[in-house]
């Protein structure tokens, strides 16, 4: 069969036509509501913890609670079921970050505590930490020179 550059371009068009797109509108809608629910739940927790704690401690307690819930759900294989429907709604909040740390920790347990769980735990979250730190550094520099 023809493998020329032109044939490859034609094939690329055929593939695009034949492959259905992800249902972006419904995905966005589900992500919006599920992400909003998680954040709303976070706000409820914050209000509750604020009653007996300082603002700073209360914020920390909210993060810890959400991470714990996500880790437990991941352990029982439930978070993946939520993620399938909610998509970005369950990936973007801190619960998604917890899921991305716990899931490889479980998956690579068989390779041992060092080379498995320990080494692979941040395989997905690592880039988020690296580039999160990097971005905050850049923003900090801009703020230092321009923003003040």
């Amino acid at each position: 069969m023809d493998t020329s550059k032109r044939a490859k371009q034609e094939y690329d068009q055929m593939v695009k036509k034949a492959s259905p797109n992800s249902p972006i509108f419904t995905n966005c809608l589900k992500a919006f509501f599920s992400g909003g629910l998680i954040c709303g739940f976070g706000q409820l927790l914050l209000d509750y913890f604020s009653k007996t704690n300082s603002q700073e401690d209360a914020a920390l307690l909210v993060s810890v609670t959400l991470i714990a819930i996500s880790a437990i759900l991941t352990g029982f294989g439930l978070y993946e079921k939520l993620g399938k429907h909610c998509g970005a709604g369950t990936i973007i909040p801190i619960t998604g970050f917890a899921n991305s740390v716990v899931s490889p920790a479980i998956e690579f347990k068989k390779e041992g505590l060092i080379f498995g769980t320990g080494a692979k735990m941040f395989i997905l979250a690592g880039p988020v930490i690296v580039y999160g730190t990097f971005t905050s550094m850049i923003v900090g520099l801009i703020y230092y020179f321009v923003g003040r």
Binding site: S22, T74, G75, E80, K81, S103, E107
Partner: peptide, 9 residues
């Protein structure tokens, strides 16, 4: 990806 990761296919 790990099985229990909540991603979409």
């Amino acid at each position: 990806a790990p099985l229990s990761l909540g991603n979409q296919r």
